[in-house]
Amino acid sequence: MKTLVAYSSRTGNTKKVAEAIYEVMPEDAEIVSVEDVKCLDKYDFIAIGCWIDKGTADKKALEFIKKVKNKNVAIFITLGAYPDSQHARESMDRIKKLLEKENNIVGEFICQGKIDPKLIEKFKSLPPDHPHALNPERIKRHKEAAKHPNEEDFKKAKKIFKNIIENLESTVCSQ
């Protein structure tokens, strides 16, 4: 089963998660930025990673996702929000909708990640009633996000993706 780990990363969060996932992929797997993928035809399984921008995949990842057709796909995302938040769930659901019509989604992983310092500076200038304005709760979340991804996140990602690969391989072997 030919495997690709493709990711888009702004601050390095998603790239780090991609590298952890890659460690549990089959020997002939490849890892590459979504911008550098040349040909999708040769892959049976694609792990797609992106960071969240405005509630969905970032622009580079969205362009890549449009090209993915008739594949087994798993998605991993990083974002500043808590992984179990409504925002994280809705963001993942939006990405899945983009892929599910023409692909078989076989798994997912959500990971909190540090927020781009440029964005935090921008948030400081927003009026208090703006949804992204800095307030005590948002500052607390930003401080927590700055601790991620961490070793525990990598461990979880590896476990999930190792199981995905094992399930896909057992399905292929039983056919």
Rank of each mutant, 00 (worst) to 15 (best):
E166T: 14
K143Y: 09
I21L: 05
I139E: 13
P117S: 12
E90Y: 11
H130C: 08
D28E: 14
N103W: 00
A57V: 02
L99Q: 01
L126W: 04
Q86I: 15
H142M: 14
K54R: 13
A81C: 14
R89K: 15
P127C: 10
L79D: 03
K162T: 09
R138N: 11
D116L: 14
E169M: 11
I65W: 00
A61M: 04
R94W: 03
V68T: 01
N150K: 05
K155T: 13
A146E: 11
W51P: 00
F161Y: 15
K143I: 13
L126T: 04
K2I: 09
K124H: 08
K147T: 15
T78C: 14
I31A: 08
K162Y: 12
S33P: 00
D53N: 12
F64V: 06
D116C: 11
D58I: 08
S125E: 14
W51D: 01
I115M: 13
H148V: 09
D44P: 04
K15Y: 04
A47C: 07
F76L: 07
K16T: 06
F161H: 02
F154P: 01
D153S: 05
G107A: 08
S33N: 15
E169Q: 14
I75A: 01
N135D: 15
A157D: 06
A81F: 10
S9F: 02
H130K: 06
A74G: 04
N72I: 05
S125C: 10
I77K: 01
S170T: 12
I75Y: 01
F154K: 05
A81V: 11
E144H: 09
T171V: 11
T11I: 02
I52K: 01
V34R: 01
K54H: 10
A146C: 07
V172L: 15
E166G: 06
I31L: 12
K140H: 12
E102M: 07
Q86F: 13
E121A: 12
D53Y: 11
K96V: 05
L40Q: 09
K122P: 02
A29G: 05
D28P: 02
I164A: 05
I160R: 07
L98Y: 08
T78E: 04
E137Q: 14
K2Q: 15
K2M: 12
V68Q: 00
Y7S: 08
S125W: 09
A146T: 04
T3L: 09
